[in-house]
Structures are given as structure tokens and as C-alpha cells.
């Protein structure tokens, strides 16, 4: 009797395993399918941003772009560096471009803070490491997207990002949002978030919120694949820097200094 009971349990276990395996095969097939259709509908856009540091530094304590972004996207103001969430923020030039180590840096850049964002890399390491495809690069326009419904909060993408561009919700962010914008969701605790290049505004035909907010016109947004776009013109006429280009991530935020 003892043996039959055990056999029964084993059989039940095997059955459960079989059921999961069947489902798994189906999901795998489905997933491969969506991958190909996504790349097929590509329209050949490549969004990028040019930051003209010279114009940005005209007003040093300016926070217009940060405020606009954070209000649009319900980014909470948590008030401590441990738990803080930021989509755009300012850092010392020397830290942003640590690979440009130079004791005799041009005076107008020394100890100056410049805006940084997600670089929307062409070869994003965060996407490579995500175990659930909750973050991925859109083939049609290069935006590195986030799916906050799917993110499990393992924070591997934060670990893999060489730019510190990603933030994690260590707690429910809602109490820390002063004025909730009902047009955009807030996030739940336990998911990662970052700049989305204002993917929603782009779909509505608008420019990113930060670009629109910058009175100095220091932020220029456009399509790199369009020869006549303003970003292409600026890059043609000016010397530009990208953050940590040696890592092969191909950042799509360009800095004019």
C-alpha cells in the first residue's frame, strides 16, 4: 500500500511537469513570433538627443527640463539619495565623462553640472540581462522601453547599466508625488523605471517634455536616420561626446561641449 501511494504522488508530479512543459513550448513559439513581427513593421527611425552643454550652462541652477519630465511622468520626490528616483538629473561634467580624465579641463566645464538621462543605447546591456523582456529596444525607433506590468524587480538591469540611469521603486511612490498627472500612470513598488524618451508624447506628435521645457534650446531631439534632421546637422557641424563609448553600448545622447 505504501508503495502505491508513493507511486501515485510521483505520477501526479510527472503529470504536472508535463503540463508545464507543454505550455512552455507554446510560449516559446509565441515569443519568437512577436519578435519577428516587431522588426518587420520598423519604419527606420532612430531617435536621438543632442545636448548643447554650452547653452545648458548659461543658467547653471536651471531645473526646467527635470521638473517638466518629473511632473509629466509622475516621478516621485522621495527626498533621500538612498531611495530616490530620477529620470533626468545633473552631475559634474568630470563624473559624467570620467573617461575624459584631464587635470586641465576647460574652465567653463570644471565643476559644472550637466543633465544626464537614459542613453537609449543601440546595444543596451540592460535589455540583454532582463530575464522577462520587461525592458527591450523598439526596433522601429530605437527607444529602450519598459513594461512596468511585467518587470519582476530583480534589478539586474540596474546592475548592467554603465550610466546609473535606472531607478528602483523601493516603496510605494504615490505618497511622494505632489501633483499626480492622471494622463500617465504612477508606478507600483518593486519595479524599475527610467526615461522613455517621452514615448507617449512622441506618439501624439509632440516633442519630449524636457526638450519643450528648455528655454535655452539646449536640448535637441530628432531622427538620426534623417539626413536633414536638426540632430544630424548639429552633429555634422560640431564635435560631440558620448558617455563611455569604449564599452560598445552606442549611446544615442550626444553632448556638444
Amino acid at each position: 500500500m505504501d508503495v502505491t501511494r508513493r507511486k501515485l504522488l510521483k505520477l501526479a508530479g510527472l503529470g504536472a511537469l508535463g503540463l508545464t512543459a507543454g505550455k512552455y513550448a507554446k510560449v516559446f513559439a509565441n515569443d519568437a513570433f512577436t519578435e519577428t513581427t516587431l522588426s518587420e513593421i520598423g519604419t527606420g527611425k532612430r531617435w536621438a538627443m543632442v545636448v548643447d552643454v554650452r547653452k545648458c550652462l548659461v543658467k547653471e541652477d536651471c531645473r526646467e527640463c527635470i521638473n517638466a519630465c518629473h511632473i509629466t511622468h509622475n516621478v516621485p520626490n522621495i527626498g533621500n539619495t538612498k531611495d530616490e528616483i530620477k529620470w533626468i538629473w545633473k552631475e559634474d561634467f568630470e563624473n559624467v565623462f570620467s573617461d575624459q580624465e584631464n587635470h586641465y579641463l576647460k574652465e567653463n566645464l570644471k565643476d559644472k553640472r550637466i543633465p544626464i538621462f537614459c542613453n537609449h543605447c543601440d546595444n543596451p546591456p540592460c535589455v540583454r540581462v532582463c530575464p522577462t523582456q520587461a525592458t527591450w529596444k523598439r526596433e522601429e525607433d530605437g527607444i529602450v522601453m519598459m513594461d512596468w506590468h511585467r518587470c519582476i524587480g530583480c534589478r539586474y538591469c540596474i546592475v548592467a547599466c554603465p550610466y546609473g540611469s535606472r531607478s528602483f521603486n523601493w516603496q510605494d511612490p504615490r505618497p511622494f508625488i505632489d501633483n499626480i498627472n492622471s494622463e500617465f500612470p504612477t508606478r507600483s513598488k518593486g519595479v524599475v523605471e527610467k526615461c522613455t524618451f517621452c514615448e507617449k508624447r512622441l506618439a501624439e506628435g509632440k516633442q519630449p517634455a524636457c526638450v519643450e521645457a528648455c528655454k535655452e534650446k539646449a536640448l535637441v531631439f530628432g531622427n538620426l536616420n534623417d539626413q536633414n534632421s536638426e540632430v544630424r546637422k548639429l552633429l555634422k557641424e560640431n564635435f560631440s561626446l558620448r558617455r563611455k563609448p569604449g564599452l560598445g553600448t552606442e549611446p544615442e545622447i550626444y553632448y556638444l561641449v
Binding site: 512596468w148 510605494d172 499626480i180 498627472n181 492622471s182 500612470p185 504612477t186 508606478r187 507600483s188
Partner: peptide, 13 residues
């Protein structure tokens, strides 16, 4: 439903 953890009900706002 956990929709409302993130999505906002405008009337409530």
C-alpha cells in the same frame, strides 16, 4: 485588480 496601484482615476483626483 492591481490596475489602480499605478493607473489614476481622474475623478478621484
Amino acid at each position: 485588480p492591481y490596475c489602480w496601484d499605478c493607473h489614476v482615476d481622474p475623478s478621484q483626483l
